[in-house]
Amino acid sequence: MRNVIGRYLDTIDALRLEERMLTHNTLILGEEGAGKTNLACKIRNFVIDNNVPTLYMDFANSHEDDVELRYKDEHFNYIRFEESEAFDEAFAALVAEKKHIYMAVNPNFFATKREKKSKLSQVISQQKLLDDYYYFFHDIENLNGFYTKFEDFLLYMLSFTNLQKQGFTFLAQPHPIFENPHLKLLFSFLYVGKCSNANYYNTAILKTLSKNHFYYQYRTAYPTLLFNDIKSSMVKIDEYVPEL
């Protein structure tokens, strides 16, 4: 079980992923080079080891040859989203067999109007996926206008926790949309890496963090009158080296 992913910097304890992360949502924020992909890969390995199928959406719309080597393990099944019958058939075959899926996606397929639900949102909200899959949303292109086409997807995310049985991990560079308190409530686990703007989550320490160092916040499993208590720690994530 690949559950040890790093260490706490304020104690001698190892940083371990726990089973409840499979059903709770994680947000990974940080500038380019902060180590977001490395951390997401650690979480993906943990989900795979728990026999939960994964759907990894790469919003950079990467060609298969450009996908990082760390994802090209025995569980790697690449597909590119298209509005076509050929895609529908290929995707349905992967889902039917509960294969791990790495899907390249162009964010332009999202709707730009609130009242219109895109084909992309319809595809990723299929009941079979919601029942079985752990999702990864890798928002690589947000500086190139991703959030101008985000309304359809945001509405989907806000209802996501009421539909799915597994959790999801969202990776992104910092953006004011994540300061929205309603959006924050979607996430039980939060990793914030190096950020050039110290206003994000009101912690100036984010300017000084080096690669694979994160400000880790999580809601405890013990309920209170309002919401579970939030604990915070500084952590260092181990670098993932693919097995050859």
Rank of each mutant, 00 (worst) to 15 (best):
M1P: 08
N3S: 12
N3G: 09
V4M: 02
V4P: 02
D10E: 13
T11A: 06
D13G: 03
L15K: 07
L15T: 10
R16T: 15
R16W: 00
R16C: 07
R16K: 15
E18S: 09
E19R: 08
L22C: 07
H24F: 06
N25W: 00
I28C: 01
G30I: 13
E32M: 05
G33K: 06
K36Q: 05
L39M: 07
C41K: 14
C41M: 08
R44L: 10
N45E: 11
F46G: 02
N50C: 01
T54W: 00
T54R: 13
T54K: 03
L55T: 03
L55A: 01
M57F: 04
F59E: 07
F59H: 10
F59S: 12
F59Y: 13
A60C: 03
S62T: 14
D65L: 06
V67R: 02
E68H: 13
L69R: 03
D73A: 08
I79R: 13
E83S: 10
E85S: 15
E85P: 09
V95R: 02
A96C: 11
A96D: 15
E97H: 09
K99C: 09
I101W: 01
M103W: 11
M103G: 14
A104Q: 03
V105F: 04
N106M: 05
N108V: 03
N108Y: 08
F109P: 03
F109S: 09
F110H: 15
F110A: 04
K116G: 05
K119W: 07
L120C: 05
Q122M: 05
Q122G: 08
S125W: 00
Q126N: 15
Q127Y: 03
K128I: 03
K128W: 04
D131Q: 13
Y133G: 06
Y134N: 02
F136W: 00
F137G: 07
D139E: 05
I140C: 12
G145H: 13
Y147Q: 13
K149N: 14
E151N: 12
D152T: 12
Y156W: 10
L158E: 13
L158Y: 08
F160Q: 15
T161S: 12
Q166Y: 11
G167F: 00
Q173N: 10
P176T: 07
F178T: 10
K184N: 08
F187P: 09
F187K: 04
S188E: 10
S188W: 00
L190V: 11
V192T: 11
V192N: 04
G193V: 00
K194H: 14
S196M: 10
A198K: 15
Y201R: 07
A204V: 09
I205K: 06
I205C: 02
L206Q: 14
L206P: 03
T208F: 11
T208D: 15
N212R: 10
H213Q: 13
Y215V: 06
Y216Q: 03
R219C: 05
A221M: 05
N228G: 12
D229S: 09
K231T: 08
S232H: 12
S232P: 13
S233C: 11
K236P: 02
I237Q: 02
P242K: 15
